[in-house]
Design a protein around this nucleic acid. Structure first.
Lengths: 183, 183
DNA sequence: GTATATTTTGAGTATACACTCTATTTTGTA
DNA sequence: TACAAAATAGAGTGTATACTCAAAATATAC
């Protein structure tokens, strides 16, 4: 692993190149050679810093997963609108990362460690949505809130997925309408 | 292309093997060799019947796309519930095909012919959803119905996507609730 | 039954891929 | 400045992949 400053910088360049390639040409086109070319690094350096291609993919996926949700320290008081807005701005403002988030999640097999990571993160996120819903409407049972959160998150993910196939789709508009139905 | 009965039968065997492999091991594990092994065919036969691996993938994707919607000849009078039920039973009863539908759609790049095919199909489907919505509520404007259809379809796709990551997720239950809220 | 078109076989090819190895250069430290 | 640790370069390896090809086997038409 990297100890010197140059190594740490190269590591960051490799991660950035990987993220860009995933967003631009998908998982299939993101080869070690393509990553190295874009990061201006030779294969030997790559493998001095990462033990395998999978490691850098996991690193990029981890960053995408973290970026999709707002700061967890705010979770105790956040509103549903804030959570929805955070997701919208993630998709709109960090679109390369959003593409990675959706593509990697979809292409991972059911039993892979990557898909488990996504699922774990999704469950946490659904919990935050459900908590925000119950804060807005204290009469809501925990179970009803959980179901409602899954449906809303499903809609947001599905709409983002739609936008992945068609960059001209008005994601933000549709996402807000999906969220309104619970307001 | 196949002209004799034997050729047509092997063609079908190859398509079936490809569909099964896509559902079981994903796009990555679906190699020509794996397809041939499962279809009990040699590589030469494969390439006598299909000009490339991509062709058989497109064929499977085409079948999955067609299977996702109910019979188009019924479109003039179908209700929203019928459309939603058709999608639910597609996901639940034809789960291998549903996995293929979602995985291939997600792994295709924005500008590929496969993604264009999916998008075209999606637009048609959204139109049928919107028509059914306006039939149920004639006061609904065309534009509002179009937006509502996109949101509902997004939710259905997103929930199916969720189920793809976690086979224990109660897709049918959540899908029906989504239809109630967004329909 | 024979001729022709189609299908099948299975070894073989070219290539792209992830990854390794060793020599060399660069960096941080005392 | 001297030295050890770390980073880099870049040629090289093994392997899995999509795909080809010539010959043999089989199906169809007459």
């Amino acid at each position: 692993m990297a100890r010197y400053r140059t190594g740490i910088r190269t590591q960051a360049r490799i991660v950035a190149a990987t993220r860009e390639l995933l967003a631009e040409v998908g998982l299939e086109g993101t080869t070690v050679k393509a990553i190295c070319d874009r990061a201006d690094v030779q294969a030997g350096s790559f493998y001095n810093l990462f033990s395998s291609k999978e490691q850098v993919l996991i690193q990029v996926a981890r960053e995408a997963i973290q970026a999709v949700g707002p700061d967890p320290s705010l979770a105790a008081a956040e509103t549903l609108d804030e959570l929805v807005d955070a997701y919208i701005s993630f998709v709109v403002d960090e679109s390369p990362l959003a593409r990675v988030y959706l593509q990697v999640a979809a292409s991972s097999n059911t039993d892979s460690s990557v898909s488990r990571r996504y699922l774990k993160h999704h469950v946490q996120r659904a919990g935050r949505f459900a908590d925000a819903m119950r804060r807005a409407d204290p009469h809501l049972t925990a179970e009803d809130a959980a179901v409602a959160a899954e449906v809303l998150l499903g809609a947001l993910d599905g709409l983002a997925f739609r936008w992945l196939l068609d960059g001209t789709f008005e994601f933000a508009k549709h996402a807000r309408i999906a969220a309104e139905r619970y307001g």
